[in-house]
């Protein structure tokens, strides 16, 4: 069974919190906040709400300011916010909606309408999350796609730039994949890609690490806070594990079984370099590995 959606109700009036909480508690997990700062604490928690019902008029920080702060942070800007307020002018409503609220309910409210609107907005939010997930996933291997990888690279590059940590990136290419497809058929080729993806998914499991399908028979591993020894170790392990899958490949120049070539690079991200340099570096190592005979790991350490 699906876990109950979580709704944050923000209002400085105890009575309003009571009424709305009683209205929604049966269907949802309800959390409450009595001011703007508490609301921001709740939305920035490890388990943020799926929807926020937000009062406008509150002391210290009003609802507009809470929404503005939520919209300015990547982690919270996607949480739908419904204003529920005694401010009843069209100007106030327009302001709330222009700031990014998904709806605006005027007090006194009609409870069944509040319930219906909450339900509708949660449905929309759930569908949007699903679409976002699909847009970032490779359909064949069900692992992150290139778009997802590039977003992660950008995010981790900025993070490591701030912390001064190493960052490693590996590009992996299935050796003689065209010949495999030509000999065994595209369905068999797809199965091989799925098996390679399974190895990568199993071996790359730290929270910030990303294994993604870069395109065709090319995969990429993003390894933040990893030095060249650590990166090379995992790349070599993956190379061995894939050859040990023992998938027959009678038309490969690298052996009788399916193999992969890997190129890796380690850098310390800084303001003087760009994230794409990492991809270019790993790609040139991969090219060199293929030129030297395939089924190998080549690495460059630029730290």
């Amino acid at each position: 069974m699906d876990e109950k959606a979580k709704i944050l109700i923000v209002d400085d009036e105890r009575l309003n919190l009571n009424v709305l909480s009683d209205l929604l508690r049966q269907d949802y997990k309800v959390v409450l906040a009595k001011n703007g700062n508490q609301a921001l604490d709740r939305v920035n928690s490890d388990n943020p709400p799926d929807l926020v019902l937000l009062d406008v008029l509150m002391p210290e920080m009003d609802g507009y300011e809470v929404l503005r702060k939520m919209k300015s942070a990547d982690e919270t800007k996607g949480i739908p916010v419904v204003f529920i307020t005694a401010l009843d002018s069209e100007h106030d409503e327009a302001r709330g909606l222009e700031l990014g609220a998904v709806d605006y309910i005027r007090k006194p409210f009609h409870p069944p309408i509040v319930k219906a609107r909450v339900k509708n907005h949660l449905t929309i939010a759930r569908q949007r999350k699903l679409l976002e997930g699909l847009a970032n996933l490779d359909g064949l291997t069900e692992m992150p796609n290139r778009r997802s990888f590039e977003m992660a690279l950008d995010r981790e590059w900025r993070r490591c730039s701030r912390s001064g940590d190493n960052m490693s990136l590996v590009m992996l290419d299935v050796d003689c994949f065209k010949q495999y497809n030509d000999s065994y058929g595209h369905t068999a080729g797809d199965e091989v890609l799925k098996k390679v993806a399974e190895v990568l998914k199993t071996e790359v499991q730290r929270p910030a690490d990303v294994a993604a399908r870069y395109g065709g028979e090319e995969f990429v591993l993003l390894l933040p806070e990893t030095d060249s020894d650590g990166g090379r170790y995992i790349a070599e392990k993956i190379r061995v594990l894939i050859s040990e899958l023992d998938i027959e490949h009678g038309h490969s120049s690298a052996g009788n079984v399916l193999t992969v070539s890997l190129g890796g690079v380690t850098v310390v991200p800084s303001n003087f370099s760009e994230a794409k340099d990492l991809t270019v570096g790993a790609d040139s190592m991969l090219y060199e590995a293929k030129r030297r005979g395939r089924n190998m790991v080549l690495w460059t350490d630029l730290t």
Binding site: L8, R25, K29, V30, V31, L32, A33, R42, S45
Partner: peptide
């Protein structure tokens, strides 16, 4: 539960 503002408190 109070830590997260849970109404079921």
């Amino acid at each position: 539960m109070p830590g997260e503002g849970n109404a079921e408190s």
